[in-house]
């Protein structure tokens, strides 16, 4: 399956791209993509550990299954505080 991944902020600078299409095996999850990106861009690894994921413009828990045509974004912490302080899943 193919998914679209978009990069913002520090991830855009490190990958030097705004978006790309990734071809993944059926049943792949957001965690699989995290592993893939850390291998392709070693400098991303420490940032990815601080990111949460959004699929199709909504926050999702870790290890969410992906589907054909999904839009995936790894979201690094914003300036206002950490994700741990807030239940982002309910928003």
């Amino acid at each position: 399956m193919n998914i679209r991944i978009r990069y913002f902020a520090s991830l855009r600078e490190i990958t030097e791209r705004q978006e790309e299409i990734l071809t993944l095996h059926d049943g792949a999850t957001t965690s699989d993509v995290r592993t893939l990106l850390a291998e392709r861009f070693p400098r991303l690894e420490p940032i990815l550990t601080r990111c949460v994921c959004a699929v199709n413009r909504g926050y999702v828990p870790a290890n969410t299954a992906l589907h054909e045509g999904d839009e995936l974004v790894f979201i690094p912490p914003m300036g206002g505080g950490s994700f741990q302080e807030l239940d982002v899943w309910s928003l």
């Binding site: 913002f8 601080r50 690094p76 912490p77 914003m78 300036g79 206002g80 950490s82 807030l86």
Partner: peptide
């Protein structure tokens, strides 16, 4: 404003006289 700062995907990079960095809170 408090909720926006923690959940809305907008990021800030500080460009200072001695370098630059994305602010993570």
């Amino acid at each position: 404003i408090d909720t926006l700062k923690t959940t809305v995907p907008i990021w800030k990079k500080e460009v200072a006289t001695n370098g630059e960095e994305w602010v993570e809170g």
